[in-house]
Amino acid sequence: MPWRESAADLDRARAERPIVVPSAFGGLVGIYTPAAPDVPSAGLCAVLLTRPRSHRNRMWVEGARRLAAQGFACFRFDYHGTGDSEGPTGPLDPNRPYRDDIVTVLRVLRAQLGGRRFVLCGACFDARTALSAFADEADAIAGLMFMAAPVVELDTLVRVDADRKDWGHLARSLRNPYNWKSLASAGRWRYMATVIGRVARRSLGAAPAGDPPLGAAFVEHFQALLRSRARALFLYGRDDAEYESFRIAERTAFAKLTPEQRARLEVEVWDGTVHGFLEMKRQRETFERALGWIAALHPARAAAPARTIPGDATPSAVAG
């Protein structure tokens, strides 16, 4: 069902105020939602990342107001070159996250609004940008909600995703007129050539080449997360192309975690997809899981909340 604004949500909406964060690219425009004064404070500021800042179906607007009603201060903002913010616009690459933007925002929230501990939340590029903040501000981050982001370079992601396709998949694709139409794009030709090449090599019995490398930026920022004391939830859909890349991280970086690190980092993999938020039922499930996970970081929540893992989906691994 669609979000219906409650009295508490409206109360927090009335308390919101715009903040312009000075940055190297110009002003970054965001909305600060103060924690409700009549509930116990979480002592945490949740920063909800995406562009434009409201997110699909206004998820981060609803999220900020609901979390604020539970005692979290919240902030959502436009990266440079997006939404209301200043700065040059360019294509976003998860392997080149906007680390300067998020670090600048955290420091302004600390200096001007008294935020000392933060929870960061995002999907895809926004998840990678949230993770990148650990390189500079690890001690100030209490939690990371990391959804459906690639963790290898994008050209590697295409190859990794192609390796789960077969001739049957290609045959079905070629029956789809939309795919023929899309071949007008040179990029689509390159993609198709990569997929066909990978499928053909496997058919001819070529040995798997082993895991491709994780993205260098991911490795650097993930190591910073490991050195921190923060908790994190990594959430993917089994059918997400991005999950194929994350499986490499599970086999490599996650396999080396110490018990202490393993206790802090959770991984959930749901049936179907998480990436995209284009279907309402899954959008709401994902959103509620993210909000529930953040809300559970409230010191007053002594016991972890009941998991809201949807339907028949089961976590492939849950630690902590």
């Binding site: 110009g26 002003g27 425009v29 909305i31 070159g81 616009t89």
Partner: peptide
């Protein structure tokens, strides 16, 4: 494309009916 505001830009809320609306 104007990467920078040519003059001040002010984000704010104003009322419409009984609800605050965001504007710049």
């Amino acid at each position: 494309p104007l990467d920078r505001a040519p003059a001040p830009e002010t984000p704010f809320f104003f009322p419409s009916g009984d609800r605050p609306l965001y504007a710049v």
